[in-house]
Computed example of a mutant assay.
Amino acid sequence: MLGRREVGAHPALGLDNTRLLLLCMVASEVWDAETKPVDFVCNKGARRALNIVAETESALCNDAKTLSTLVQLPCTELHVASWKNKSHQGIRGDIVASLRLLIEGVKVVRAQIQPGCASLPLQRLEHNINNYLLILTHLQLSGPAVSPALSCVPLSTLSLNTVLLKYNQLISGKLEWFMVDLENRCTSQ
């Protein structure tokens, strides 16, 4: 019969149909989030879908758990009293500075390792951080622009698990608080 295909692995990608479908779903969520930052603010499900930390942790091989170079960790502590006194621009600047610090460390480590088991989680992490940076930098905020600045003195680690933990704390902590603070935009759009 013409046009009939075997169910299972995709010959060109080496992916089974379930993984291919999941990849397409995640890609569509990321695309929507990247192109429409306000939709990202208003859709908690899209924010949760973009956070890949749990999947990355579960897919780590032993070779990937210890890094060859120290990675500076993002600032994750949230002081609620001082947070409430910051402008939206200042809050965004804090989060963007933390994401930039982390992505630079990930890029350095990725450049030093061979392709394989250890490089895949770092590549996914770098792409994920870039997605958050795109969303935050394209988000329309009122008030004067504020240069991104760290709210802490960064610590460093050789543990990819610690990097993922701190990244998750940044995304589910500071970034989520910021999105909740911006939710008033959702009803006015």
Rank of each mutant, 00 (worst) to 15 (best):
L139H: 11
L50H: 07
Q114C: 08
S87M: 10
I113A: 02
D181V: 02
L67W: 05
A64E: 05
R100W: 01
W31K: 15
N62C: 06
C152A: 05
I103L: 07
L175M: 05
E6L: 09
D39F: 04
T56G: 03
P144L: 14
Y132I: 10
Q189M: 10
L122S: 03
T137A: 15
S28W: 13
S58E: 11
E176M: 07
K174T: 05
A33Y: 03
L134D: 00
N168M: 11
I129Q: 03
M1Q: 07
S188E: 15
G45T: 05
I52H: 10
R100Y: 01
N62R: 13
W31I: 12
T56L: 09
E6W: 13
N17C: 12
G143L: 11
I171Q: 04
C24W: 15
A149S: 13
V153C: 11
T137N: 12
P154K: 06
V30G: 00
C117N: 02
V96Y: 05
S68L: 06
W31H: 15
S142V: 13
L70D: 13
N130T: 10
G173N: 02
P11M: 14
E57N: 09
R4T: 14
R48V: 11
S87H: 12
T35V: 12
A46W: 04
D181R: 06
E57D: 04
T35K: 13
P74E: 00
L101I: 05
G45I: 04
S147P: 03
V38N: 07
V163Q: 08
L15G: 04
E34N: 07
V71E: 09
V26H: 08
Q169M: 10
S151G: 14
V53G: 00
S87P: 12
I113G: 00
F40D: 01
D63V: 06
V7N: 07
G105V: 05
S188F: 03
L13H: 05
Q112F: 10
P11R: 14
L139S: 12
G90S: 07
V109K: 02
E29R: 09
G93N: 00
W177K: 08
L22W: 08
A118H: 02
A12P: 08
K84V: 07
